[in-house]
């Protein structure tokens, strides 16, 4: 079987298009690359959607934590505490069993599927982590900028939208990039944490483990997985770097915050 044939059969296997059964023999490099690559579809799906939805919730959470009103502040603080203080792995399990209860009660049965349920958990998880990052940035907005905004007659929503929020994002961006990378890494947990795989449509790590179990040789599938993830990480860094440049475009060149990708900052 040629490699092109393998790609046609398994290129979109992770979303149920192509060959029904997973490969049973051969296990050549082409199969490894194709199937693990098709699994990346799910990693990108979970990561990208959770990032987009989580961004909005994170802003709300950061504002809630910074709010003077107790009924806004306390729930935000608890939300961040619960999701940052416990392992994502446990959150997945717990959420799955809650969704299972809901399904038995006839409420939202589709939540037990990984595509919806795990995505929801990831959204809330990343919202809590990024909310904390944005909150920290919000508190370190220079006082002078706010005073200048006051002097120019900005107030309320306009002051927030035009002055405070852009600076918050600018300050938070390097740490937020880190969070995005961690989020994409965290998507590999989904199919190992209670959420069942439907018709063996799993993510990249699921297929890598499939090959490692079949061939009993971890030295081929995991490096391939690492290769794909390094590409993904570089893409995320590149994309976030573009946004970072736009957020910093008004600053003189030497004052621009250099993007420093350091995994020790967060999580």
């Amino acid at each position: 079987m040629s490699c092109w044939q393998t790609i046609q059969d398994y290129g979109l296997r992770a979303i149920g298009i192509g060959e029904r059964l997973l490969p049973r023999e051969g296990y050549d490099l082409c199969q490894h690359f194709t199937l693990i690559g098709s699994g990346m579809i799910w990693n990108i799906y979970f990561g990208a959607l959770a990032l987009i939805a989580g961004f909005f919730i994170a802003n709300a959470v950061a504002l809630g934590k910074a709010s003077d009103r107790l009924w806004l502040r306390k729930p935000s603080e608890w939300f961040v505490l619960v999701f940052r203080g416990s392992p994502l792995f446990i959150q997945f399990f717990l959420a799955y069993f809650i969704f299972l209860r809901l399904k038995q009660a006839g409420v939202m049965p589709w939540l037990t599927a990984a595509q919806a349920g795990a995505l929801l958990v990831l959204i809330l998880n990343t919202a809590a982590y990024s909310g904390e990052i944005f909150f920290g940035a919000l508190r370190s907005v220079p006082r002078g900028e706010v005073e200048a905004a006051d002097a120019y007659g900005f107030s309320g929503w306009r002051r927030f939208r035009r002055i405070i929020w852009p600076t918050t994002l600018r300050l938070a961006w390097p740490a937020y990039t880190n969070e995005a990378i961690f989020l994409f890494h965290a998507t590999t947990l989904v199919f190992f944490s209670g959420f069942p795989t439907w018709k063996q449509q799993g993510d990249a790590l699921y297929y890598a483990r499939f090959f490692a179990d079949k061939t009993f040789n971890p030295f081929v599938p995991y490096p391939i997985l690492a290769f794909y993830f390094i590409l993904l990480t570089l893409a995320v860094i590149g994309l976030f770097g573009l946004v970072n440049r736009r957020l910093n475009r008004h600053l003189p060149a030497e004052r621009r915050a250099k993007m420093r990708i350091r995994p020790n900052l967060i999580r």
Binding site: I181, H185, T188, L205, P218, L225, I230, T233, L234
Partner: peptide, 20 residues
């Protein structure tokens, strides 16, 4: 190594790789 690749992948890799 930890920057680009999920730690879970390392866990699964090293457990078999070290054993072998």
């Amino acid at each position: 190594i930890v920057r680009g690749v999920p730690d879970i992948a390392f866990f699964m890799f090293f457990v078999i790789a070290l054993d072998q």
